[in-house]
Amino acid sequence: MSVLDALQATLADEHAALYTYGVLGARTSQATSPALFETLTAGYRRHRARRDQLRLMVRDVGGDPVAAEAAYDLDGTLLRPPQLERAAADLEAASVEVLLALVARSSGSVREWALTEATWSAVWQLQLGGGAATWPGAPELDLP
């Protein structure tokens, strides 16, 4: 897989993440769950900036940025705040995994950007009720 392929895969994942954050935010009441609403809004903004940056990076290496799907499947029932928070934490965990794949396939400024974003997603999981892990984004290393 080339760095362009990895960038496109990361961009495709960001399209799905933005869609998911949009749904999670729409199902969160700013009045009754202000902290969660604020956390989801901040996450949405970070992923939007990430998507825009990825589009530029894809063009920089001569690619045509992959477009978003019309809609994405969301797993499970997402109605209560704990479910919404958990879904966002799972999304960030998945983002770390995708970004680590980009780290492996890139170098220089692209790798540095992917590492920074992976670290942000890992730490943001704590804001979403998650805990610190030993191998975020590399679950196979947790195996004995």
Binding site: L100, A132, A138
Partner: peptide, 19 residues
């Protein structure tokens, strides 16, 4: 690249524990 990925996961873990 493999090593970079392992170290990136370590960095993410260290940042989580630090946070």
């Amino acid at each position: 690249g493999d090593l970079a990925r392992v170290l990136a996961s370590m960095a993410a873990s260290t940042a989580q524990h630090g946070a």
